[in-house]
Simulated scan of single mutants.
Amino acid sequence: MVINSEDHTHITNQYSAGTDVPRLMIAQACFDEHTTVTDRRSQVRQQARWQTKRWLNQVWRTAAVPFSSPVKNAVAPKTKCFEFNVIHTQQGQPIGFHPDLGVRGVSVSHSGIWYAIATASQPSLGIDLQCYRHFGSSARQWAFTAGECTQSMTLLCAAWAVREAFLKSHGVGLPHLLRNIDIDWQQQRVSDPAANLSERMFRMVYGLYWVCAICYCSESERPEWDVATLSTTVPLTVSSARSTSLC
């Protein structure tokens, strides 16, 4: 699904998504001509916060059913004119909350002038977006295995994104010895038994300037989701058992 920032026209809809399907938005922040470099970081965060509530309401206003409902794909009930708010757990993990519809999982990440937002019906959700960059020797020793350190910059950024998204899906943040988190690229599974963190599934989205990882509970059905880009024509590649290119 590609979304135009002006009219939000749905150009491509890959799959008929149910309420258990993670929905992902990747956006480039907008700046005016007077924005300084030092102001950009705070503006990216502000725009990400604003778009998070907007994305929650857009995704769930037609597909939402009460979080406790046992009926999958049930007809959405009529609700009052409330909107989702983003609240945080004691560990700092964000949660989407609606007075009528209840709780929805949400995760936010930003890097450079880009940000990513994911939402799903289950709260065990984590996302991390990394603009492509090089890592120093100390970061390599802390975040990557010996075998990974010989790989390309793209792979290193992808591994970093998977591990951070994994931690976020558990409500855990840094510092954490990232290299101890095991990534099974073939099965798209990630785990850290030594830290008592249960296994998650993950998926990847690659762009020209960044890589984005999303982790979700492995007990859930393997999702296929719509990917939305806002205010950009950058081509995306979604990694899965059946690779799909969007542009």
Rank of each mutant, 00 (worst) to 15 (best):
E219A: 15
Q47P: 08
G112N: 09
K80L: 10
C217G: 11
S124F: 02
V190F: 01
N196G: 14
P175M: 02
L177M: 15
K72M: 14
I127N: 09
S138M: 10
S16Q: 15
S107R: 01
F84V: 03
V75R: 13
P223W: 08
T19Y: 09
Q91G: 14
W160Q: 01
A64E: 09
R222Q: 06
P77N: 14
W160N: 02
L174S: 09
D20L: 06
V211Q: 00
F144V: 00
W160A: 05
G207R: 01
L177C: 13
T232Q: 12
C149S: 15
C215I: 03
A27D: 06
A213S: 09
R23H: 14
S68G: 15
A63H: 13
V37H: 05
G147T: 07
P193F: 03
L246E: 02
N4T: 06
L129N: 02
T145E: 00
V172T: 04
S124C: 11
E219H: 14
N4K: 09
S243H: 12
A29N: 02
A64N: 04
A139M: 11
Q122G: 13
T237E: 07
I11L: 13
E224H: 10
G171I: 05
W50A: 12
E148D: 07
H176E: 08
I127C: 08
P235K: 09
F97L: 05
N4G: 04
N180A: 07
N4H: 03
H34E: 13
V234P: 11
C157P: 07
W185Q: 08
G92M: 07
I127H: 03
T244L: 14
Q151D: 05
L174F: 08
L155W: 05
E33F: 04
D100N: 04
A27P: 01
M204T: 07
A139N: 03
L101W: 07
P235I: 11
N57L: 05
E164L: 04
C157V: 02
V44R: 09
I117W: 00
M204F: 03
V71R: 13
Q43N: 03
T229N: 05
W225S: 08
Q130K: 12
E83V: 14
Q188K: 10
A139F: 06
S240A: 11
A120K: 01
S245Y: 11
L177R: 03
Q47M: 13
Q43I: 13
